[in-house]
């Protein structure tokens, strides 16, 4: 049986993005989004207020090999 998440998610995509569900495989893929939601739930609380995307470029520089 199709998970509950599928129909309302298809409707939300149609409203927000104007994209229609293209095929059965896409519908199947939406059912799998429950797994991603569960994975993101596990990460709640890890992001802190000051985290921002530019920290990545900084981290690339900070994590370089120590001089040999």
């Amino acid at each position: 049986m199709e998970p509950e998440i599928v129909l309302p998610t298809m409707e939300a995509i149609r409203r927000w993005s104007g994209v229609e569900c293209p095929n059965a495989a896409a519908r199947l893929g939406l059912a799998d989004m429950a797994g991603l939601i569960a994975d993101m739930e596990k990460l709640r609380g890890t992001m802190v207020f000051e985290d921002e995307p530019s920290s990545f470029e900084l981290a690339l520089r900070q994590c370089k090999e120590p001089a040999k």
Binding site: W16, C21, P22, A25, A26, G29
Partner: peptide, 13 residues
Amino acid sequence: IHLNARLFGGYSI
């Protein structure tokens, strides 16, 4: 099929 199926899920995130 596999590509538009994968892209479609991206709009729900």
